[in-house]
Amino acid sequence: MARRDLPEINAGSMADIAFLLLIFFLVTTTMDVDTGISRKLPEKQPPDAPEPPKLKEKNVFIVTVNRNNEILIEGEHFIQVDKLREEAIKFIDNGGGLGNPIDGAEPAECDWCEGTKDPESSDHPNKAIISLESDRGTSYGTYIAVQNELVGAYTVLRNRLANKLYGRSYDDLLKDSENDPSNESLKEKVENIKKKYPQIISEAEPFK
Rank of each mutant, 00 (worst) to 15 (best):
1 M>F: 07
1 M>K: 14
1 M>R: 08
1 M>L: 09
2 A>Q: 07
2 A>N: 06
5 D>L: 08
6 L>S: 09
6 L>M: 04
6 L>W: 07
9 I>N: 05
10 N>T: 05
11 A>F: 08
11 A>W: 09
15 A>N: 10
17 I>Q: 15
17 I>V: 15
17 I>P: 01
18 A>L: 15
18 A>K: 10
19 F>Y: 13
20 L>W: 09
21 L>P: 04
23 I>Q: 12
23 I>A: 13
23 I>K: 12
24 F>P: 02
25 F>M: 11
25 F>C: 10
27 V>E: 03
28 T>W: 11
29 T>I: 09
34 D>H: 13
38 S>C: 03
39 R>I: 15
39 R>N: 07
41 L>E: 15
43 E>L: 08
44 K>S: 13
46 P>L: 06
48 D>I: 13
49 A>C: 01
51 E>A: 09
53 P>K: 13
53 P>E: 14
54 K>M: 12
57 E>L: 12
58 K>E: 08
58 K>C: 07
61 F>T: 08
61 F>D: 05
63 V>W: 02
64 T>A: 07
66 N>A: 08
68 N>G: 10
69 N>R: 08
70 E>T: 12
71 I>P: 03
72 L>V: 09
73 I>W: 02
74 E>S: 13
75 G>A: 06
75 G>Q: 07
76 E>Y: 04
77 H>I: 07
78 F>A: 08
79 I>D: 08
79 I>Y: 08
79 I>T: 05
81 V>C: 05
81 V>E: 01
83 K>S: 02
85 R>A: 06
86 E>I: 01
87 E>M: 06
87 E>W: 04
90 K>I: 07
91 F>N: 00
91 F>P: 00
92 I>G: 03
92 I>C: 05
92 I>Q: 04
93 D>G: 03
94 N>W: 05
95 G>K: 02
96 G>N: 02
96 G>K: 05
96 G>R: 02
97 G>P: 06
98 L>W: 04
98 L>S: 05
102 I>A: 02
104 G>N: 01
105 A>Q: 11
105 A>P: 00
107 P>L: 10
107 P>E: 14
109 E>R: 14
109 E>H: 15
112 W>E: 13
119 P>L: 08
119 P>V: 12
120 E>G: 04
121 S>R: 10
124 H>Y: 02
127 K>A: 01
130 I>A: 08
132 L>F: 12
132 L>G: 00
132 L>W: 05
135 D>Y: 07
136 R>E: 09
136 R>L: 14
136 R>H: 07
137 G>F: 01
138 T>L: 05
138 T>F: 03
140 Y>R: 14
143 Y>D: 15
144 I>N: 06
147 Q>K: 12
148 N>I: 00
150 L>V: 15
150 L>D: 02
152 G>E: 03
154 Y>M: 07
158 R>K: 09
159 N>W: 00
162 A>I: 03
162 A>L: 04
167 G>C: 00
171 D>M: 00
172 D>V: 10
179 N>E: 13
180 D>M: 01
183 N>R: 04
184 E>P: 01
185 S>P: 00
186 L>G: 07
187 K>S: 10
189 K>M: 15
189 K>D: 04
189 K>G: 03
190 V>T: 15
191 E>I: 13
193 I>G: 01
194 K>L: 11
194 K>W: 01
194 K>T: 08
195 K>N: 05
198 P>E: 11
199 Q>I: 12
199 Q>L: 15
201 I>T: 13
203 E>I: 14
204 A>F: 03
205 E>G: 04
207 F>Q: 12
207 F>C: 02
